[in-house]
């Protein structure tokens, strides 16, 4: 059989359906409910008189708690990105960074010029993503990328610290 015919056969036999690994409906339902709630909130009923206000507040507190305890993962999230979540991510990142920098100071270590340049690039990327998320707070891809950039920064700091500790031990 020619390759052309083989390819045509594969296209003809092709099944367009694929099964996602996780339940997608819960996230869809939550996002729709969240949007509907925001629409209702925008009608300017005083906050304390809104029946769902306490539920929303509790939801935000829960999301924030989950983020700060590293339980929350953007891949599995059902909660739409918001400016508050970005702030929390950035604050959490700042705390982690400071903890690592304290360790650096204790070991009298200064990052190499290459590492410093990489760290600056990653921080600039984080800032740019945070700004973009202010304009487009529902964008899950941007939020995921911000988290990825944060992780890269911490990983780089940690690997630099480990390598310095090894040198000191030698």
């Amino acid at each position: 059989m020619s390759n052309q015919q083989q390819l045509d056969d594969l296209i003809a036999e092709h099944n367009s359906e694929l099964t996602p690994r996780r339940d997608l409906w819960r996230g869809v339902e939550a996002a729709i409910a969240h949007a509907e709630q925001r629409k209702a909130d925008s009608k300017q009923v005083p906050v304390h008189r809104q029946p769902g206000a306490w539920a929303i507040a509790a939801g935000v507190v829960l999301a924030v708690t989950m983020i700060t305890t590293n339980i929350w993962s953007p891949v599995n999230t059902e909660v739409p990105a918001t400016a508050q979540l970005v702030d929390v991510l950035n604050t959490h990142q700042q705390q982690q960074r400071e903890q690592l920098l304290v360790s650096y100071q204790q070991s009298s270590y200064e990052p190499s010029a290459t590492a410093e340049a990489e760290l600056t690039k990653l921080r600039d990327a984080g800032d740019a993503l945070s700004k973009a998320l202010q304009e487009d707070p529902q964008n899950q891809a941007l939020l995921e990328m911000l988290r990825w950039v944060h992780e890269q920064e911490l990983m780089l700091l940690q690997s630099e610290l480990k390598s310095e500790t090894r040198w000191q031990q030698l």
Partner: peptide, 11 residues
């Protein structure tokens, strides 16, 4: 990413 996108499509 495709799972996130599929959710976004239905929203």
């Amino acid at each position: 990413y495709a799972e996130d996108l599929a959710q976004e499509v239905f929203v």
